[in-house]
Design a protein around this nucleic acid. Structure first.
Lengths: 184, 184
DNA sequence: TGTGAGTGTATAATATATTATACAGTCCAC
DNA sequence: GTGGACTGTATAATATATTATACACTCACA
């Protein structure tokens, strides 16, 4: 009963972030504040049902609760210089936020020069979704053996675990805004 | 359907998929096979520690265990006509995918005419993140009492539970690509 | 037929989680 | 100061999870 690493501190941080007292949270969840106190101090390992009750009251999913969520930025705005380039080769991938660890959302401003492409590796992500919208130019997108060319104002959306590949078959840069969750 | 999804059937399917008997799994996890049996038939709600032991033996993370991996759309590509307008007033919000129910990711192509704005209501979302990138024009964005004007290629990212408001204070349309998770 | 090695289930005994309390500290109004 | 409404913690009593069994069933093989 000492092996539950961080359920307690996680719950406490979560509760604080939503500005709830142990009693308020316990009321919403239909539990007693003592239980919340026990859990937060890692005195007990709550049952799934109990934790689900608590998270439903916040609300938050069990999956999100257990996905590592570190401290988050308090800086909400990002100038162009604040975007972090995580691309390689000729491809530019500008990411919103430098410290995404644990954040459930990654947004990228992508620019593909003519002829450039992303690796065709299956790139086995965790469960999650990935999608985007083409802003300028054209891109050939292959998802799980299905290929299509997308133009400006067209989009895509697929589960991240599928192998996928981007290739700019046009003659001008292709600009895409993409989002995926959770970040790999 | 996921509110009361049973841990039991999920664990049983998982165990079967890895071709393990209740005893083999229990041994690996350092538990008794009776416990596994109880859990699979939903006779008990296991403690987090116990479930973690079991999943470690498979292995699988708690987050992945609770993440819904149900059937989803097999249509990955979206032409401009396939985007669903969920906006109101003068604001156009084109959503990728018509049937997002249960999907953890919503991507929007937003267009704000000069002078238009989104409701200033706190708009208390579920937990999650929301962010975006300005493509054209300028937008005045207010997040939790902080206000800033963003131009093209600038972005924003914040936890969805904070009150926020958009207003186009420029003289041309403002185009934004945004993403949020989970969809409200 | 058996016998042995598998399966999963059912049930008391025991360990643990959850409740119902009491307690101590903080903050604010008066 | 004093009272009241909050915090969060600590500890017995109770409810529940987990264990240690026993049991019934299937399948392969002699």
């Amino acid at each position: 009963m000492d092996i539950h690493q961080n359920v307690g501190s996680r719950l406490k941080a979560l509760r604080k972030r939503y500005d709830l007292s142990q009693r308020k949270l316990a009321d919403k969840a239909g539990l007693t504040h003592g239980t919340v106190s026990h859990i937060e101090r890692d005195k007990i390992s709550p049952s799934i049902g109990t934790l689900r009750q608590i998270l439903d009251a916040i609300p938050m999913t069990l999956s999100d609760f257990f996905s590592d969520q570190g401290e988050r930025d308090t800086d909400f705005f990002y100038a162009e210089d604040d975007l972090l380039d995580v691309g390689s080769g000729g491809v530019s991938l500008l990411q919103i936020g430098k410290n995404l660890n644990g954040l459930p959302l990654q947004i990228l401003l992508e620019r593909y020069p003519p002829g450039s492409e992303t690796a065709s590796t299956p790139y086995r992500c965790r469960s999650g979704e990935e999608g985007g919208i083409v802003i300028e130019g054209e891109i050939e997108l292959t998802i799980d053996d299905r290929t299509r060319v997308l133009k400006a104002n067209e989009g895509y959306l697929f589960p991240s675990h599928l192998p996928h590949k981007m290739r700019n078959v046009g003659e001008v840069d292709c600009v895409i805004v993409s989002a995926c969750t959770p970040p790999a």
